[in-house]
Amino acid sequence: MGAENSKRKDLKNISDEEYKKFMENWKKATNGKDKMTREQFVPTFPIFGEGSAQCYYRMVNDEPSGLLPSKSLLRIIDGGLGHFDTLANSLILCFGKEKDVLMRSVVKIFCEANKFTREDQVRLYDYFESENTKPIEELDHFFSTCPLFPYTASFIYQRLVERPGDSKMPTLNEKSQLMGNVDQLVLNSHLPFDRRKNWTLLYSNAKHGHSFSQLVKNINGQGPCFIVMRSMRGRRFGFFASHGFLAGPQYRGSAECFLFQLAPKIGTFSATGRTDNYVYLNYQQQQMPNGLGIGGYDNVWPFFIHETFDGGLSQKNSSAFEPCYLADEEHFQIKNIEAWRPGEKPQKTFEEMMVEAERDPERSIIDKDPEARAVMEMAGKTMHSDAYREKKPMLDEK
């Protein structure tokens, strides 16, 4: 017992139960011995896949016996479950100092363990390669700028101690026509932690009809939301609305909003903090833009969908976000569009917020913003105040 405790005391990130299970498997594979051969290692730790032998030889490089002691592998795993600096060291011990080889190995192991396709592997590697401009000596700094990579890497070490590996994939209530595995994985990694588990489809033009009014009905007051679309040219792109949508000529959201491109390549573009012009949803006003967009004003937007729902704007280098050109054309046409809510619906519904505002004349949104009332009535909600103008039909309802 004392010897076991002595081996265990240096492990900070492996639980007693994980250690016990690991050693049971180890002794079963080695017939009770403390050192493991390559022939024993490969079938015992299948997570490494085709690269098992190469990993084994790297890990025993400094071992005089040429065999792998249990304590050496446990220390590597413990480091892989630790902070960025120890994770980086564990990765180098397993996969070597060539950045390309290390990144490809991590991606391959992660994708195969999660049953991703070969195309998924290529797309995920391309994303990491575009994000990682640092040399291998600064691998831990890359982790800070691209948190998804250390998440996928630590997944390997979780599996080595049979800890339920968190793949970081969200659970969707319906299949997306616009987002594959890697798209969902990358977008999910940029969300607040409390919004990463379940995604709910709010709107799809393939399911609900190609209608701006239907889009507004389904997203208004529903909480944080992704807008994802495919243009007629095949580009896939969109944005995350951190506070969701409330119809009216005002901007909503925070610096948690971001733009993204999914095809032809994956990229995310963070808010710069230079403006508060984030999410915008408005219609039927003569002096304000009518449509849905983010990060713009008047006729200058990185992403904007017209109220007519026939197309939109995509312009370069908005001051609100990092430089990007999502559609690769200034005026795009919509082929497919989806809206997804990550996480749970807010406790207060849009209707409840409107009723509360209606009861307080000092801060009534209904009085200040007739468009908000129009959206409520369009959704079939009955309001009890007379202080509103007669609703005009929306363009796609004429």
Rank of each mutant, 00 (worst) to 15 (best):
G66A: 09
M376D: 03
S213G: 06
K108C: 02
N173L: 04
P361F: 06
K21D: 02
S72Y: 04
S90N: 10
I156S: 06
S211F: 09
P64K: 15
Q287M: 13
M169T: 01
T152R: 04
Q184W: 00
N218L: 11
F303W: 03
V101Q: 09
L262W: 01
I366L: 15
F303Q: 04
E329Q: 13
A372G: 14
F149R: 02
D120A: 06
K175E: 14
Q315V: 02
F304Y: 15
K175N: 12
Q158C: 09
D10V: 02
P289V: 05
T171Q: 13
Y283H: 12
G293D: 08
T268H: 05
K28H: 04
V182K: 03
F258R: 03
G223H: 11
G343V: 09
I337M: 15
G295H: 05
L73I: 15
D360H: 12
L187E: 08
D328I: 05
M288R: 13
Q284S: 12
Q284Y: 02
N220V: 08
Y127I: 01
H141N: 08
Q222T: 13
G96Y: 07
P69D: 04
D100T: 15
F321N: 06
G253P: 09
S270D: 14
P170A: 03
K12A: 07
F212D: 03
G209N: 09
K115Q: 08
V300P: 01
K217Q: 14
L91Q: 12
K27H: 06
K115T: 02
H331T: 14
P393A: 07
T37F: 01
K391V: 07
M36D: 01
S213I: 06
Y278H: 14
